[in-house]
């Protein structure tokens, strides 16, 4: 699971039938260069990591920090042949980050 800030929403006009009614968030993942200490940094900074579209059923909004999971595990909550590989696992309340140089 990586942390990232939600920078937008994605609305699909056509999608795979298994993904009907899904809610998609655009997330910029944090890395060592940009890892804010608060859950709502409030700036519009985007990291150098590629932004990712993440499935969401927890109701996160733009500006929130979320923990999203990528890979086959992201489709675990669903049945088989659901083409999802990034899911929002949690909304972050507090971050305590002390990186060593």
């Amino acid at each position: 699971m990586r942390l990232g800030k939600i920078i937008g929403r994605v609305t699909l006009s056509k999608n795979a039938p298994a993904l009907d009614g899904a809610r998609w968030l655009l997330v910029t993942p944090y890395n060592r260069d940009y890892f804010p200490e608060t859950a709502h940094p409030g700036d519009r900074k985007i990291t150098s990591e590629p932004s990712i579209v993440v499935y969401d059923n927890l109701g996160a909004g733009v500006g929130d920090t979320v923990g999203f999971i990528e890979g086959r595990e992201a489709a675990a909550p669903f049945g088989d042949n659901v083409p999802i590989d990034a899911i929002n696992g949690l909304l972050v309340d507090k971050i305590h980050y002390r990186p060593l140089p």
């Binding site: 942390l3 060592r32 927890l58 109701g59 923990g67 909550p77 696992g89 949690l90 909304l91 972050v92 309340d93 507090k94 971050i95 305590h96 980050y97 002390r98 990186p99 060593l100």
Partner: peptide, 25 residues
């Protein structure tokens, strides 16, 4: 990896309930 932080979260997938969530570099 080196443990470099921790996060707290209340709105989450129920399976994360009660687990320590550590930021690992």
């Amino acid at each position: 990896a080196r443990v470099e932080g921790t996060i707290t979260s209340t709105v989450k997938h129920p399976s994360f309930g009660g687990w320590r969530l550590l930021i690992c570099q």
